[in-house]
């Protein structure tokens, strides 16, 4: 694709802190290269603002290669912007053309309160993982890699679910702010493997209880989460989580 530069108008959510009401501010950026990433475009704007003595726009980012799950911008009505299967940092400016207006908002969900500008507090996800998203393994010698036979299809499905980076785009996209795609990816990842067996029942029950406590909604199966997931986690994981939950609810001892 041919290289080009563009001038853009940005409408960005600015909010000083958790308690501030916040509002949209309009910025113009010029000579943006089509080869830049979306975050690099923000870097250019922020650098200019620092030079001008203004407060730069706060946004989350870390690895900038789509694996850490930190970046979290809701761009023109879609989490992580217009491309499919990519995070905000993997979105490139060639997705836009000269003269475009881009509206950038933070993830919106009461369980993800805005800390500043485009940064939201996603520690609710950490607490859900703490509630049951783990397996207990005794220390000692590492087990041989192929000692435990695992059905190929199960391993593949589990690995695909394990691709979840916990960015929260599913929550941002869901009309109910449900975290079930995230949760179902974590539950499926472990439930499909023999290593996840011992805590299988308590895991799903405890994680759902924590999710409800954190204030996420329930699932309506609209599929919006699956459509925006940068790791393309399939929504069938949610059905598997429902089955896991039902099974645990009907058969657990206590």
């Amino acid at each position: 694709m041919e290289h080009y530069t563009m001038n853009l108008t940005l409408k960005v959510w600015r909010q000083k802190n958790k308690k501030d009401k916040g509002s949209f501010e309009t910025y113009t950026v010029s000579d943006i290269s089509s080869e830049m990433s979306f975050l690099e475009m923000f870097d250019v704007l922020n650098e200019r603002m620092v030079h001008e003595g203004k407060e730069p726009i706060a946004f989350d980012h870390d690895c900038r290669e789509g694996i850490c799950g930190m970046c979290s911008m809701y761009i023109n009505g879609r989490p992580h912007g217009p491309w499919e299967g990519t995070t905000t940092c993997q979105l490139h400016m060639r997705a836009f053309k000269d003269g475009d207006t881009i509206v950038v908002e933070p993830w919106r969900a009461n369980a993800f309160p805005v800390i500043k500008d485009l940064v939201v507090d996603r520690s609710a996800f950490d607490r859900i993982i703490q509630a049951g998203g783990y397996i207990s393994v005794n220390t000692g010698n590492a087990v041989d890699a192929n000692a435990t036979p695992i059905e190929k299809n199960k391993a593949d499905t589990s690995f695909a679910a394990a691709a979840c980076i916990g960015c929260g785009a599913c929550v941002a996209a869901c009309k109910n702010s449900s975290a079930l795609l995230f949760l179902s990816a974590k539950v499926s990842h472990l439930a499909l493997l023999p290593q996840g067996g011992p805590e299988r029942k308590t895991r799903v029950v405890d994680m759902i209880a924590q999710m409800d406590k954190e204030g996420f909604g329930s699932c309506t199966s609209t599929g919006a989460c699956e459509a925006v997931c940068p790791k393309e986690i399939p929504i069938t994981n949610i059905a598997r989580l429902n089955a896991e939950y039902g099974h645990a609810g009907l058969t657990s001892d206590k």
């Binding site: 409408k11 949209f24 809701y74 023109n76 009505g77 879609r78 509206v103 908002e105 919106r108 996209a173 009309k175 609209t222 599929g223 919006a224 989460c225 699956e226 459509a227 925006v228």
Partner: peptide, 11 residues
């Protein structure tokens, strides 16, 4: 959201 998702991703 200022810009709703609309039909992007769901019926």
């Amino acid at each position: 959201y200022q810009v709703p998702m609309g039909n992007k991703g769901s019926k």
